[in-house]
Design a protein around this nucleic acid. Structure first.
Lengths: 206, 206, 206, 206
DNA sequence: CATGAATGAGCGTTCATTCAT
DNA sequence: GATGAATGAACGCTCATTCAT
């Protein structure tokens, strides 16, 4: 039978699984090669890069990619899963360690932006209406939205920022701000994201 | 089926038009038809709509479009030129009439956002790395950047907003915020743009 | 680039239509080339032949085929239209000229079989559940079913054959009998079709 | 292509196997599972079903199927062997028990049609020019042709039907008539097969 | 000048078949 | 032997762009 096809969400498996089948070793190595290649291609050609290109870069057949990642977003999801996880996990711990909820939020957003800006076209894909990315979109939201919401709430409760903005809106705003040809010296997403944050801060007039 | 319509040549149109300079008139009317059609198509199918679709709507051949607008962005630019002009011209007059430079800036940005959000996919196109839109990008910048910069400077000089942001960055930020599936109830670009503005007003914080 | 495709041909064109647009001439010639090529390919590779193969044989791009015949069955239909028409038109005239309705039916079926057996895979396609052939199926039925029904009715009314069989069933039966690798010496569709006819004839016991 | 692999006909099959070598038991059980799975899949997806699907249903690897049944038709043949056998064996006994050779033939054909129409796509496959089915074709013919011929001869000798049709032709005709989308209410293969039979009975007409 | 027929690169996707484990 | 991962040919289809008419 097919081993597991639990796609996007949680292949991870950090529990010390025994490789049920030695076959797995090969396949796993292959997966790694694949993910590495895909990551590389994504950087240069964006997440919309032709499957063929990724396959070529990885030195495998296209079929192999389809086998491991039936959907493009499965692939994208897998490529960035670690970073998404890291981002998600960073939320609570930042909240615990930072000197204030707002500081935590700011640091977390920094991670998030880091993530987005280094991945060519990823932010773009997050808002694409392309159905192929539906799963990816969901995955991101499912995983990160609660984290962002928690940080936001904490900052609101601490009176550091005004209420009224939803985590979804904030994340998408940040995502959008990170869209664009990488490293245009005239446009620094971070500066704009920071403005957003300052716009959220307490005392405001009109 | 093709209703056999074959046989001799066609002697072309010798109805004795004596268009003094009808050439010119014709061409102009054609352009108008074209622009109207394109505008219409852009609304429904976005600015990436197939050339064919536009040509069909206009009732002209694709070649005609290519002749008048060698590049897709030439076409898009032409279609929205009026509005871009209006936006550009509104800058100085708002500055003159508004109660403060910041108010003028805010109103101007509102116009700009209006423009972007109502044009399906336009904001998207503005940041696309698709080479076909390079000229469009330039056009927008050439025309609107100085206006925005002027408003920005005025507001800075009036002490209403902090210095340090460049008009380019602001415009692109706003442009990016306007990207997205139209009218997702959970995401309102204006709210985020407003945050950006508020972020600019703060007397300095971090 | 296209080598030379400026063959000769003339397409005759008996009605003295003025060619609305000289363009038409080219396109028409192309259509002819296309139909000829398709016909040829259909013979050797069946009506399921890859579009590419047909395009190659015709010396045109695939797009050209798609333009002229958006659907595969459009192409097949076009290729065989003449023959279908001939078959359809033969019905009434055979009925008028043959010595009896049954004789007419028999002769008509002969034409029909002629048509089917010479077209590799056509009979097959007619019963395929492949959605691409839906239109083809309809076309055949629309055109030939009434003709067959008329002949059938006449023979029934003349008391030459028993009632009870529908034209659709008969046609499909004949179509099915004509399926198969062409010219297997051990299998002659005509013989079986003739048996079918004899089975229909009047006096029958059990 | 694969050299000679004409296994189709007689893959062992003795019933009372003593699994002297447990290997054997395993392999056999495997075969059974395989055949059961294939049969099931054939019903739902036709005999052209992807190998993968069958392998999945059987819970084995595709390689295993290829080992046991190098050719698709080997598999199809194996799946339906029992029924083919039953059909083959029914011939002589029907001949012995029926009230007349013709009655026997009719009943036998009924069995044959039963067999064909209940197997999704089987009739179709029997005449397919797909090389993968060549062996299947042979197998059917080898096994059933003599039976049919015997029945036919008997009926001819009894004066019940006209001579002149060969068993091969009759069988293929019947096979063809059974091709088609299952259970189209407008087309009943049996009715046409019956016509064929009646056509054979006539004391000579045309 | 306008037209739109033609081109063909490019993409996603499927699946028979092979072969390392 | 059994497995199923890998391969890649093959196909349908779309559309930007060119160019003969």
């Amino acid at each position: 039978m097919p081993p597991g096809r639990e796609s996007v969400v949680s292949t991870t498996s950090q529990s010390g699984e025994v490789p049920a089948r030695s076959k797995r070793a090969d396949a796993l190595r292959n997966q790694q090669t694949l993910l590495a290649a895909a990551a590389e291609v994504f950087v240069t050609s964006g997440v919309d890069a032709p499957i063929r290109e990724i396959a070529a870069k990885a030195g495998v057949g296209m079929g192999t990619i389809y086998r491991h990642f039936p959907t493009r977003s499965d692939l994208v999801g897998a490529v960035y899963r670690h970073q998404v996880e890291a981002c998600a996990e960073a939320g609570p711990s930042l909240l615990a360690s930072a000197e204030s909820p707002l500081a935590a939020l700011r640091q977390w957003i920094d991670l998030f932006v880091d993530f987005l800006v280094t991945k060519h076209g990823l932010a773009n894909a997050l808002q694409s209406d392309n159905s192929g990315f539906a799963a990816l979109h969901s995955y991101f939201l499912d995983r990160l939205l609660p984290v962002c919401a928690q940080l936001l709430d904490a900052a609101v409760n601490a009176g550091e920022i005004r209420p009224g903005i939803h985590a979804y809106e904030l994340m998408r705003g940040i995502g959008n701000l990170c869209i664009g040809r990488d490293s245009d010296p005239r446009y620094d997403p971070r500066r704009l994201v920071e403005l957003l944050l300052q716009g959220l801060q307490r005392p405001q007039s009109s």
